[in-house]
Amino acid sequence: MLLACLGATSQAQADTLLTLDDITPTSGSSASKISDGILQLTDNSLSNRTYQIGSAYSSSAVDVSSFSASFSFQFSGGNPNWNNKSADGIVFVMKNAESRTSGGPGGGLGYASNTENGITYAGINRSIGIEFDNWTNSTFSDPGGNVSHIGIDMNGNGRSLTTLNISPAFNGNGPWYAWVDYDGSNLSVSVSTTNSKPGTAMLSYEIGSLESIIGSPTAVIGFTGSTGLATQTSQVLSLDIQNTSEPVPEPGALALLGTGAAIAIVRRNKMRLPETC
């Protein structure tokens, strides 16, 4: 019974790390918080809707030794001056607190290094990014066919470590639900138009130590997004990140466990004493 209580105490320590309320738009970027706390990374209603770069992050770094993240997002609209085509997408980012907050517009998704209109943008170094991309950029070796895809990126490089085509297209078919899980070595991603997590991850990659990549046991977490000549409104609707590291009992709980064990031993020994005359 004592062990059960301690187990419940330990489990309670696996608290939520972050929600969307903890994510703040980066000053000077196109990101903003709108009604109901929705994070809007790019805005298709602007008169100058092209080449936007939006970013938003948690105000403090959190433990990323092992976690499970779930969030929802939606893309809508297109550029009426460019055949109503829509682009480019968003990136779920885990980065060093000292790393830059954004990469380039267009195919850079606000995360990766690229060159647009003669301007070269650096990517977000010391980071891992999960892209939700709805435009095929040959520069980044994006998969062909269906333009919507997910990918796992590293250190501001837009050439994904691994990708997967997604159908239907992200734009206009949301809201979409996404899950990102990291077990200390393997990073896995899934998406769906229903809020039901697939039993098997849709995309995974053995990245090894996230701490080694980021250069810290903690990371700032957030999102980036961008437009190019093709544009859209990109919004993150919800976010929940749980720490899935093995919970460790507090010192007081450990002391209680030791006391309980000692009492149990004494009682057991008393039961074994032989009867006396």
Rank of each mutant, 00 (worst) to 15 (best):
M1Y: 05
L2M: 11
A4T: 08
G7F: 04
A8K: 14
T9E: 15
S10G: 07
Q11H: 09
A14P: 02
T16Y: 07
L18S: 03
L18I: 04
T19H: 03
T24L: 01
P25H: 05
G28V: 00
S32V: 02
S32P: 00
I34E: 05
I34Q: 05
I34C: 00
D36L: 02
G37A: 00
I38E: 08
I38W: 01
I38T: 13
L39W: 00
L41N: 03
D43A: 00
N44S: 11
S45A: 06
N48Q: 14
N48A: 09
T50G: 08
Y51Q: 10
S55M: 04
Y57K: 06
S58Q: 06
S59P: 05
S60W: 08
V62C: 04
V62H: 12
V64P: 01
F67N: 09
F75Q: 13
G77T: 07
N79S: 11
W82Q: 10
N83K: 14
K85Y: 14
D88I: 01
D88L: 07
I90V: 12
V91Y: 02
V93S: 03
E98V: 00
E98R: 10
S99C: 04
R100C: 08
G103Q: 02
G110K: 03
Y111A: 03
Y111N: 06
T115R: 07
E116I: 12
G118C: 05
G118N: 07
I119R: 15
T120A: 13
Y121V: 10
Y121T: 10
S127Q: 11
I128R: 07
F132C: 05
N137H: 13
D142F: 06
D142A: 08
N146T: 15
N146Y: 14
N146H: 14
I152F: 07
N155P: 04
G158S: 05
S160K: 08
S160C: 06
L161F: 13
L161T: 09
T163A: 12
L164K: 15
L164N: 10
I166K: 14
A169I: 15
N171H: 15
G172L: 07
N173S: 14
N173T: 13
Y177A: 07
V180E: 14
Y182M: 11
Y182E: 11
D183C: 07
G184H: 10
N186M: 14
S190F: 02
V191G: 03
T193I: 11
T194Y: 09
S196I: 13
K197H: 12
G199L: 07
A201K: 04
S204E: 03
Y205L: 01
S209Y: 07
E211P: 02
S212P: 02
S212V: 05
S216W: 00
T218A: 01
T218S: 06
I221P: 03
F223I: 02
T224V: 12
T224G: 06
G225W: 08
G228Q: 10
L229R: 15
Q232T: 15
Q232L: 13
Q235F: 12
V236F: 10
Q242V: 12
N243S: 14
N243H: 06
N243V: 05
T244V: 08
S245D: 15
P247Y: 09
P249W: 08
P251M: 12
G252W: 11
G252Q: 12
G260P: 00
A261Y: 08
R267L: 10
N269H: 06
N269E: 11
R272D: 02
P274V: 03
E275K: 13
T276L: 10
T276K: 08
C277G: 09
